[in-house]
Design a binder for these strands. Structure first.
Lengths: 227, 227
DNA sequence: GAAATAGTGTCTCTTAGACACTATTTC
DNA sequence: GAAATAGTGTCTAAGAGACACTATTTC
C-alpha cells in the first residue's frame, strides 16, 4: 500500500470526536495534587475534559477548560500532546489533546471538585492515566526551562519554600548552599524588604520571581540518553 | 459559564476531521532536510499527512505514514503534539497530530518525494509551518536524552561524523576534546575494529552506537528559564 | 617534507556538593 | 541556654574549554 502523502483523498471523510483534557496540578500537604471532579462512591474517577469543536483554537479551549474547572486562570499551562491510541476515554472520544496546568499552592477547589494526590488517583481510565503520568514527567522535565515551581508558589515566597517546591517536583533532596548559589547566578529572584517568621527559628526573607534577561545560555553537550 | 467538567454533555456531538502529519528529517549536503512531496511549480508545498480515523492508534498511523512517505521505517520517531488553533491545513482538517521522524543520512527519497532544506521550505501552509519549526526545536532539545544524532547516522560512523551531526543539529561548533571526553564517560559508543580513510589525513576508527546501562543520572538543578 | 585529518595530554577556570560555621528567632 | 530555622564561607573533586601536542595518512 502506497498512500505516500497528501496526494491521497481529502481528509474529512472520517470525522471523529475529540476532547481537550486538563491535568491541573498544585501542591497540598507536601504532595503533588491534581484537580478532579468528586467521584461518586465506587465510580471511576476522571479528569476534567471538554468536547473540542472545529472552530475554537486549542489554546483557548484549554484556557477555558482550566478556568471553568479550577475557578481561576492557571498561572502556567502547556500542551502535553495528543492521546488516543485505542485507550478508552470517559467521553468516548477518539482523540484527546492534553494540557497540564499549574495553580498556586493553597488554591481552593471549586464546588464539586477536589484536589487528589497524583499517586492516589487510582480509578482513572487508561487514557487519562497515561496523561497524568505524562503530566508529572512533563512538569519535572520542564522545571529547568520554565518557571513551573515559581508558578506553584504565591507571588512572594521564601527560598526554603522554593527549594521545597523543587524537591517535591523533582522527587529528591537538594543541597541548600548549591541551590541558592545556582539560583543567585541565574538572576531569577529578587529579595523584597519583608521577612516571615514561621514559629521557631530565624525569620526568612521573602523573594519575588523577577527574572532578568540573560543572553545566550550556552549549555555544554550532554549525553544523558537512556534508550 | 460553568461547564466545569465532564458533567457536561457527552463528547461526540461535534465530530471533526483530524490528520496525522509527518516531519521526516535527515541530513543532506551538511544541511537539515525534511521530506516533502514534489510540489508543482508555484504551488504550495506541504508535508506528508494522513487522515486519522477513530480506530487506528496514533502511533500506528504515524508509523504507517512514515513508511509510506519515506519508503522505509524511520530510525526514530516521537510525537510533537497537536496543532489546530485556527491555522489552515492542506487537508482542511480541524486538528493535526504531528510526529517528527528521523532517517539516516543518505536515505534516498522515493519517487515523487524530495528532501528539502528546512530553511528553504517556504511555501508551507501556516499550520505545517508551525509544526516544522516545532520539529527543529524538538530535535535539538531532545538530543541530550534521545539518540537523535545517532539515528541520523549509519550503523557505523566516525567520531568526527558524530560530532558534525551534533554541530549541525545544535547549530553551533563544539570542542573536539570535550566532546570525546563527554562521550567516553557516557558509555554510548563502542569502537569496532575497522578504520575509514577519507582521502587525505589519518584514517578514523569506526564506532557503533552501543549504550551501556547507566544507573541514576543525577543532574544538578539548573535554572535556565527564559520566560 | 607539507598538508590534512585523527586523536590525546595537560592546564585552568567554573561549579556542585560536603562540611562547618554564623545569625536570629522561640521556648 | 537549647532548639530550630536561615543563611554563608571554604574546601574538594569533577567537568568544560583552551592549547598544544602526537599520530597517521595522501600528495
Amino acid at each position: 500500500m502506497r498512500a505516500r502523502s497528501s496526494s491521497s483523498a481529502r481528509a474529512g471523510r472520517t470525522p471523529l470526536a475529540a476532547t481537550v483534557d486538563l491535568i491541573c496540578c498544585s501542591v497540598a500537604d507536601g504532595r503533588l495534587v491534581v484537580l478532579a471532579p468528586v467521584a461518586a462512591r465506587g465510580r471511576r474517577s476522571e479528569l476534567p475534559w471538554l468536547a473540542l469543536d472545529a472552530e475554537a483554537p486549542l489554546e483557548s479551549a484549554a484556557q477555558h477548560l482550566a478556568r471553568s474547572s479550577a475557578g481561576r486562570a492557571p498561572t502556567w499551562m502547556v500542551q502535553l500532546g495528543a492521546f488516543g491510541a485505542g485507550q478508552r476515554h470517559p467521553a468516548g472520544s477518539a482523540l484527546s489533546v492534553a494540557y497540564v496546568a499549574v495553580v498556586p499552592i493553597g488554591t481552593a477547589a471549586p464546588e464539586g471538585m477536589a484536589w487528589q494526590p497524583v499517586d492516589a488517583l487510582d480509578a482513572l481510565g487508561p487514557r487519562q492515566r497515561s496523561m497524568l503520568e505524562a503530566a508529572v514527567v512533563g512538569l519535572r522535565d520542564r522545571m529547568d526551562i520554565a518557571p513551573v515551581a515559581f508558578r506553584m508558589l504565591p507571588p512572594t515566597f521564601t527560598l526554603s519554600e522554593l527549594q521545597e517546591m523543587y524537591e517535591l517536583l523533582l522527587g529528591r533532596r537538594l543541597h541548600k548552599a548549591s541551590f541558592r548559589r545556582a539560583l543567585q547566578s541565574a538572576y531569577l529572584v529578587e529579595p523584597i524588604d519583608e521577612w516571615r517568621s514561621e514559629g521557631r527559628g530565624r525569620p526568612a526573607q521573602l523573594f519575588r520571581y523577577a527574572p532578568r534577561k540573560r543572553r545566550g545560555i550556552r549549555r555544554s553537550v550532554r549525553f544523558e540518553l537512556l534508550d
